[in-house]
Nucleic acid binder design. Sequence first.
DNA 1: ACATAGCCTACCAAACGAGTAGGCTATTAA
DNA 2: TTAATAGCCTACTCGTTTGGTAGGCTATGT
Lengths: 151, 151
Amino acid sequence: MISQKAKYALRALLALAEMESDSISAGELAKGERIPRKFLEQILMELKRDGLIQSRRGVNGGYFLQRPADTITFGQVLRLFDGPIAPLPCLSRVAYRRCADCKDEGACRVRRVFAHVANSARAVLDQTTLADAIADPDSVDRISGLSINAS
Amino acid sequence: MISQKAKYALRALLALAEMESDSISAGELAKGERIPRKFLEQILMELKRDGLIQSRRGVNGGYFLQRPADTITFGQVLRLFDGPIAPLPCLSRVAYRRCADCKDEGACRVRRVFAHVANSARAVLDQTTLADAIADPDSVDRISGLSINAS
DNA sequence: ACATAGCCTACCAAACGAGTAGGCTATTAA
DNA sequence: TTAATAGCCTACTCGTTTGGTAGGCTATGT
């Protein structure tokens, strides 16, 4: 399960990517996306620190994307809020950590199986951008070639 | 990240699936797999309650698989210990829950993207059995067709 | 009858998740 | 020039989950 925070962040970014005006305030965003206001503020701060969005202060201030929507992937956002995508520390490329109790990583069968899970998750998340998610709904389905109702 | 508990459970099951003798005690298992003994006991209890393993009490007692290793999937074990595999409650087939703050589930772009992640994770986890993981290391790689070093 | 080993419940400390609260500062319209 | 707006920043809270420990009870084989 991804955290509520990451979900909010993605929704906020999608809203920013879609807006017509040049910026939107935290308050409006919160109302429009049904995100607790103060919580959203913190999320926006993190997004800003990470260089994904920018802000303007004072009256008529607000937030807007810093980079084009087709350069921001779901994977980046998820890693920022929820940490590594890998299901095991020893499978993370960003934050590799040996499993403390593992005797032989190369021979670990659990690791071997989850490597596939990690790879396919990354294949989707690092390839799907905000722009993909906003565009024609089916375009995102085409990325992985899997139907939403499969399995 | 999967929980330590689920990881231990999988390792224990793999050990049970591989053993030559007819049963193995919690103590031996704990030592062999480097799992805290008392913690392992609880895990084994859960596995038993769920019908995956059986036990014999008293001297020379121990645990053994209840069903053949090729009928126990990683998905079953993971769901037992960590709950739904789905990254969003609204994508779980086992424990569906609407996202409280979602306006229109059908139109949710976040959901749409993560549906692919969920599907590919399930494709691996519900198809890979203990037997697969034990057999020739490459057989498990063939299941998904992805190389371990891909992406 | 005693050692072995499973069964069961309770407890615990630390970390995490999902917020709330409150004040400070920059900007701009009146 | 002074409000009002809206972003910036830190701290705190509170319930839940994680990763165990602890301790005793009960069945079984020698």
